[in-house]
Every structure is written in structure tokens, then in C-alpha cells.
Design a protein around this nucleic acid. Sequence first.
DNA 1: CGTCTTTGACCAGCGC
DNA 2: GCGCTGGTCAAAGACG
Length: 521
Amino acid sequence: MEASLEKSDIAPAEEQMVMKSNGDEEGLVLETSKEKDQLRSAKAEIDKVREENERLKQLLSKIAKDYQSLKKRFCEVVQEEEEKKSTKITPSTRENEESELVSLSLGRSSSEPKKEEEKSSNIDDGNEHNEGWNKVFSLGLDSKFELDSSVTKKNPSSEHGFDDEEPKEEEATETCRPSKMLRTTISADDEVLQQTQTKKARVSVRTRCDTPTMNDGCQWRKYGQKMAKGNPCPRAYYRCTVSPTCPVRKQVQRCPKDMSILITTYEGAHNHPLPPSATAMASTTSAALSMLQSRSSSSQPGLGTSVSAPVSISTTNGLNFTLSQNNARPQQFYFPNSSTSTSNSHPTITLDLTAPTSDSHFNRFPYASRYSPTCLNFSSSSSSTSLELNSALQTSWNPGYSTYGTLPHRQTSATSQQCLTETIAAATKVIALDPSFRSALAAAITTFVGNNEGNGIRDNPGVGEHSGLNTKMGDSLTFNTIYPSSHDGIGRAQGSLVSFPFSASKSSSGSPVNSRDYNKR
DNA sequence: CGTCTTTGACCAGCGC
DNA sequence: GCGCTGGTCAAAGACG
């Protein structure tokens, strides 16, 4: 469409060129017409990007506006709560609260506060004016995605510090070989190695499902089964059969702790069109791939020494998005059941669709729920990425899922499904736009904290649909949004809060993944 | 008969 | 070097 519009615009110039070339030989004419086409398409592309840019700019300004007002309100509420609590709570409970709050921060981990502070000093600079609370909540993405280093730093002690709860599951979900990763990441410019690396990008989905596998819309062929160590349940290996050349594989395994939970780990990106029902998952997996690729491409050897803190976004509305790339375990302090991987070399995204019962995360952590019922929690390390969806958003890709009435999940309604789709889409977008993660984040967050009004997050966010959001922001931007309603019917105010620095505008990396493959056939 | 699953064998990486 | 483990292959069987 834009191309056709563009056609008329540039027609005169092109005609001139043609006229000119008519005087020359025919080959030249052909060449010129070729260039003409290229010019046309390029212009169209530029216009597209410009449009998108404008749209996202508006989006961001809107968010910033909202942020300002909500921040004000949030601070008021927080202060009130603080005053109330300060008289009631004991030092120990206060400590808990603090750690929970720390876990909300990007670039600060409660386990390594000092380290993080040092490493993200630039973040502090940007957030100093916020002090206190914002310090806690600020997201420092600046150095988080520098590949690396992290890789070179092995942190075995941290490996099992977190998963006492589900060690087997983690084993089941992940199988990484740090040394392998090390090799591939060290020579990031090596294309072959990069490919090897991208193969390791994984998306893990935890869902309650009684069926042997989760119906994600794709066709799979089982090619193997293995007993995983430490897990009584066998792990099944599937390969995508939609296209014979499709590299996508998935592993399916039951959670040893809860057999009703199915852990599906996807690896690779589809190289073929997918049915609409499969696009969400496909987008997510390919986005993970994209993220990994962009990381490796944007990594700088010299910056490799910084160990990033885990990045996680969590909301009571069901989103917990954790990015971690390092050997250090992702630190989701108040999401003990979120599936983070022990595997340190596989960047892994975990979608946790399991239904939390009464002991949901936030119920367990009243302060977190009180202060940030809908909080976006970013932290990053370099070993895995986990995205947890639960509560209201929990649902399944399995269309027949609701038929398993014994499962404690909520019935999948059209609303929640749409919500899930949007959530996945947004999360996918975030991942996909990793090179411009900071800016893209805004778009994704808008989907969550905004009204889901279709503001830019499409149903099928192809990985390649990079918006090219280059809007420059201030040093840090905090989103603090109140949800109009809560999913649990209690009606508590749901504030989503996230802040992150937009200290640098990166051009979005064209994702190598063919986003268009995911378009409807 | 074609497709899919099962299952033992094989290979590579890793730790000791 | 050896054993363990994860991942894959491929032959055989099951199924529609």
C-alpha cells in the first residue's frame, strides 16, 4: 500500500532518470529501473518505520504522562502504607519487605546489592532524583544485555541456591552446557557459532495439562524419549513436522513435583508459516531466538565482565518476566515456583501458566502485593529468561484444556484468552526487540499497564516487526500504572510499576528470524 | 500403506 | 581415560 503511494511521489524523479538513461544503452535502463524499484521499496520502508516511530513516540509520551501522575499517586499510597507499617511490623518483617522490593528492581539483586550497584552506577545516575523508592524499582537495563561475561563467570554456588523447591523440574527443563555456551559466546562474531548459539534459545512453558503434550497448534513428531536424571517422568523429544526442514524441537516433561504440570521446552524458530493457533507460541520461541542473536551481535568483548542482575517482570495480573543470561541463577525472590533454569548456558524463557492456588506469590508476600500488586520486575542475568504467566492470565494453548475439569485452573474465557494472547504478544515483543529492549519495553508494558487497546501490539507480533522505536527518553522512566480492576475480584488497586532507563537509543536489530513466516497462511 | 510411537543404540560433552 | 548424562538416530512395531 505504502509502496503504491510512494510510487506517485517519486515518479517524476524516476522518469527523469529513465529519460536520461534512455539515451544510453538498454542495460543501463534496466539497471536504472532496478534502482528505481529499490528506491521505491526503500522509501516505502522508511515511511513505514517513520510511521511506526511516530506511533511509538506518542505511546511513550502518553506513558510518561501516565507515569508522572501515577507516580505521584503511588508515592502517596506508599508513604501512607509505610507510615502504617512502620508502627506495626517487626524488623524482620521489614527486612522481608525490603528484599521483596529489591527483587522488583532491575539491575539490583538482593543477593548482590553492592555488586549491582557498582555495575549499574550509570543507572543510579539516572535515577538519583528518584531516590528511595525509585531506587528500588528502577530498572537498569544498560549493561544487562552485554553478553557475556557472564558467560565467562561461572557461579556454581548460585546454581542451586534457588531451586530447592523444584530442583528436578529445573533439571528437566534445562540441559545446558556452560562450556559450550562459553565457546559460542566468546566468538560472537563467528556466524556459525552464532547459529549454534541461537539453537540454544529456548522457551519453556509450564502448564497444567493432563494430556501427554500441550496442543500448541503445531504438528510434532516424537523422535525420542529419555529418562532424565532425578525425574521419574521421562522426557519426550518432539520435532516440528509442519515443515520437513523446520529446526524447531520441543521437550516435554512432567514436573516431578506436580505431575499435573507439563513442562514444554521449545527450541528454535519455525521456518514456515504457522496456523494462527500456533503463532503465539511460535512468536515467543522465535523471539527468544531473536533475543539471543541480538545479544550476541551486540555484545562487546570488553564489556563482558559485568554480571548482570536478573531481569524479571511480574504482575499479579499474571506476568512475571524474568531475563537472565548469566551463570548466576535468575533471582526471582518472591516467585519461588517460577521456573528458572539451572542451565546456565541456554537462554531460556519460561512461561509459567500453572495455576497458583491460594498461596499465590503475592499472597505469600503481602507487602509485595500491597505495594505493587501489578509490578513489572526486571532483572537480568545471563543464563535464562523466564516469563511467568499465572493468575488471571493463566490459560493454556490447549484448546481442549478446559475439558479437563479436574484441573484447578480457571476456565478459559474469551477475555482471558485474549488477555493471554496480548500478554504473550507483548512479552514476545519485548524479547524480540531485545537490541532496543529498553525502548521496546515501553510498548510491551503499555500493553500491560495500558488498556490493552490494541496500541501497537498486534495479535501476531512477528519477530521481524520491529518498530524501530528510537525515541530517546530521559535517563530513567518509571511506569506506574493502576489497573482498573483486579483479577481476583477483590478489587484492590492494582498498580503496575516499573522504571527503566532509556539512556541509549539503539536501533532495532532486524531479527534474523523470519517474522513473516508467522503470518497467516 | 503411510504415519507415528517406542526403544535401544549411538554420539558428544562434561566432570572426576 | 572413563563413566555419566543429555540428545539424537533409526529400526521395529503399532495404529488408522
